[in-house]
Amino acid sequence: MTNSQLTISPRTAAILDRIAAERARQDALWGEQNHPDGTGPDVEVAGLSRRASDAAHAARFTTEIARAEGRLTWLHILREEVYEGFAEAVVTDLFEELIQVAATAACWAEAIERRSRPANGGGA
């Protein structure tokens, strides 16, 4: 029998707690939100005057170039995930992209938290 229970680090758990708290704050402020997805390959990405599928392709290309040149940043990674989500028209694929966006944002937050720790290894 295999154990299907996920094990996450305390740092990831702390970030997920913060995300849950922010979601509760959003619900308290705005109530339940039910908006159209507004995504798809032909959707114009705000401020870019380009189709979402083109923006996703450009973000993937830019990310790969940055990786190859050794200058990859969190901005590259998260932008790629977000634009890939913007380009999705199939709701199940959009759902998976949004999970990737959330996980990438949480990973970035964890990296920021690690940078904030004192050099002597103290902190959470």
Rank of each mutant, 00 (worst) to 15 (best):
G70R: 00
A66R: 00
G123F: 03
I77V: 12
L72P: 09
Q100D: 15
I77S: 03
R67E: 08
P118A: 03
A89I: 05
G38I: 06
L29H: 04
E81W: 00
A20S: 15
T62F: 06
G31M: 10
A21Y: 09
I112F: 13
R23K: 15
R51W: 00
L29Y: 01
S53D: 15
S4V: 05
L94D: 09
A103V: 13
A119D: 08
R18L: 08
R114K: 01
R25C: 08
A55Y: 11
S9Q: 02
A46G: 10
E69M: 01
A59S: 10
L94N: 10
T104W: 00
G122T: 11
F95C: 10
S9E: 02
P10A: 03
S9W: 01
R71G: 02
G31K: 08
L16K: 07
D27N: 15
L48V: 03
G122E: 15
L94P: 14
A66C: 01
I15P: 09
E81F: 01
I8S: 12
A21E: 14
A14D: 09
T2V: 05
I8F: 08
C107D: 15
R117K: 01
A58E: 12
L6I: 06
D17H: 10
V82D: 03
G121C: 12
A56S: 12
M1Y: 02
D27K: 15
I8Y: 07
P118Y: 05
L75E: 00
R79I: 05
R25N: 11
P10N: 08
V101W: 01
G122A: 12
R51Q: 07
R115N: 13
A59Y: 00
I65A: 05
S4Q: 03
W108K: 02
A106G: 13
V90K: 06
A20L: 06
P36V: 08
T92A: 14
R50Y: 07
A58M: 11
P36S: 03
T2L: 06
I99N: 13
T39M: 02
V90G: 06
T7V: 06
R25L: 09
A105S: 02
A87V: 06
D42T: 12
G121V: 12
E44T: 15
L75Y: 01
A89F: 13
E69W: 00
V45H: 08
R50K: 08
P10L: 09
I8D: 01
A14Y: 11
E22S: 15
E97L: 10
A21P: 07
A66S: 02
L78T: 01
Q100M: 04
D37Y: 14
D17S: 10
E80M: 04
S9A: 10
S53I: 05
S53M: 13
Q26D: 15
E113L: 11
T73V: 04
A14V: 04
A89L: 02
H35T: 15
H76D: 11
A89W: 12
L6Q: 11
L6E: 09
A103P: 10
T62R: 06
A102M: 14
A24N: 13
E64I: 07
A13E: 06
A68R: 08
A102K: 14
H76Y: 00
P36D: 03
I99T: 08
R11D: 12
W30L: 11
A111N: 07
R51L: 04
W108L: 14
R23H: 14
I77C: 02
T92F: 11
L78C: 09
